[in-house]
Design a binder for these strands. Structure first.
Lengths: 340, 340
DNA sequence: TTGTATGCGTTATCAT
DNA sequence: ATGATAACGCATACAA
């Protein structure tokens, strides 16, 4: 390894200044039990030496890494970028680093990432699950060592971890009710075949709204795909092939809704006059697609901040008992498709 | 720190098996100088103990982290997600971890991130710069310690680092020439006020195409913003206020181009009949906006793979000399707005 | 306020 | 093929 030069250590500084390494160590961390004068001498020399603390030695000694692992299904959505910004904001302030990885919606990748992060001794983990993750057992390794794991957005029913999400039932209800109030009576619900309750909750909200309006629930009016833009195009085809064409569609994701709109318009359907559409997330695409998409605003940035806060609290808390809970954030309907 | 249980170490295994820690260490790493029999005994016990190597101790000892830092301006673009996927693909295969951070286009954040990564002793760094980064001196700390840094996409002219980019001049030329061939004669160029040559190169390509067609270059026909969707809307207003309304616009980013299209259509302009538009990147938004956007396809995934490959080669290379170079990837025009 | 001594868990060197 | 030992750089308990 001839590439790396020798590092400057606290011993080098100590020797030069005729103090002990312990004092240097303390001074560098601004420990109160060091005189202002020595602190200054030490810090000045450290600066001029270009000294950098060796995090490994520190980690090894302190048994903690000041690193938080973040596992998300995909990095390429506006929503995720927003959540991560929120996480970064809080983590940086508290002096934590982030180790970010994407599972690409692959449960196996998710497992591999969890293992890697575990081996790298992250202090805690923030996770949004892939669609098809069927169990949480790959996170057992963390819980066994009392390493906190918090799930956000794509969560899974659990007793032992904290979940942070929005009230998906309410959101699904609001979205569907909006369509009903606009006069829609045959509402298609486009979602994903996922193991996560959040999609089931959105469906329940949909069902609840229908029920309130005395409209029977038909499973023909529930179409499952992968919520991609392409899936939206397929959903549109499905909608048009239905014996009774829908007059409203509630899509569980904006990009998918955009695909839907495009395909429907290509088929000569007028939006929202013939079919009104509501999406989910409040992605920038809502303002690009025409007509602009009515959607559920999802507080991604806040979710990220809250998730990080919560995790860091658990980390710094003296409590050995981790209190698990479900935190629910508010989400609101944003109306954009003017009808009538 | 009562949260953490005591870790299992190689000593625990050694003691139980009546061998030395050195042997355990070797066996765990599959070192040839350990008999198959002992290897098996050790690995079996390690498994049942739930042993995990302590990366810090290893890092401390080996003076390397097997971690690559990735600094990007923003995580919320399809393009970046694609590049990162490419990086991850290669890094994972080679056993490297990724430390990903976004500068949010803030040079100060970029500097802070670089510092943090440096302190965390990343083995190497992959960077796409923020718009306003004016110098590369915050990366000096890396070069001083012979830690390789590679820039991709948003690069800066440099003699000491490797740059990976597309041929922006050619791309700008292709985009503009396409408009010219479609009959446009007053072409507005919308870009960003950035310190990076990539935008200057695109501009040069634009200028070169104009020249070839014998059209004088007017700086009134170059509009600088921040390439956001909103900037696109502003650019559209600018275009409409020009004494001679443009009949073509070459925008250096798809999202911005989408904003442009939306605003122009709202003003009653027909696209591409009145004004034809070409974007840059081949973002999914190209297929959502109407009419679909003609653009430059940018090989993000390949760029990510090449960047990671190159870095890892430098890392594992026995060469102490790092050969800096500029790698140029091919990019192609994708025509979507059918005109005539 | 400062110093001494030790351990964190691993790996490399040198013996055996 | 295996073992003993030192070293990586830092932080802490304890002593002074």
């Amino acid at each position: 390894m001839d590439r790396k030069k020798k590092e400057v250590t606290i011993y080098d500084i100590a020797e030069k200044l005729n103090v002990s390494a312990a004092t240097v160590s303390r001074a560098l961390r601004n420990h109160p039990a060091v005189s202002a004068k020595t602190k200054k001498r030490i810090n000045d020399l450290a600066e001029s030496f270009g000294y950098q603390t060796n995090q490994f030695a520190r980690n090894l000694r302190q048994q903690q890494t000041k690193t938080i692992g973040v596992i998300v299904p995909r990095l390429n959505s506006y929503f995720m970028a927003t959540v991560i910004s929120g996480i970064e904001h809080v983590a940086n302030e508290a002096g934590y680093n982030l180790l970010i990885s994407q599972s690409s919606e692959l449960p196996d990748r998710e497992n591999a990432i969890a293992k890697t992060m575990f081996n790298n001794r992250v202090d805690g983990v923030l996770v949004s699950l892939s669609y098809l993750t069927g169990s949480l057992q790959h996170f057992n390794r963390f819980s066994q060592k009392n390493i906190p794991v918090i799930f956000f957005d794509r969560t899974f029913e659990t007793e032992i971890y904290t979940n942070i999400r929005i009230n998906n039932l309410q959101a699904g209800y609001d979205a569907t009710k909006h369509l009903l109030e606009k006069g829609c009576r045959r509402i298609l619900h486009v979602s994903v075949s996922s193991t996560h309750s959040i999609y089931q909750e959105r469906f329940k909200g949909y069902a609840k709204a229908l029920q309130e309006f005395g409209i029977p629930l038909h499973m023909d009016y529930v179409h499952l795909g992968d919520l991609s833009l392409e899936a939206g195009i397929r959903a549109a085809q499905y909608a048009l092939e239905l014996p009774q064409r829908p007059d409203g569609i509630f899509v569980a994701n904006d990009n998918c809704a955009a695909g839907c709109i495009i395909a429907l318009k290509k088929a000569g359907i007028r939006i929202p006059e013939d079919i009104a559409i509501v999406g989910f997330n409040d992605d920038p695409v809502c303002r690009i697609v025409e007509p602009n998409l009515t959607t559920i605003h999802y507080p991604g940035y806040e979710m990220g901040k809250i998730a990080a806060h919560n995790l860091i609290n658990q980390l710094s808390g003296s409590e050995s008992l981790i209190l698990t809970q479900t935190i629910s954030l508010r989400s609101d309907l944003i109306v954009r498709q003017a009808l009538n």
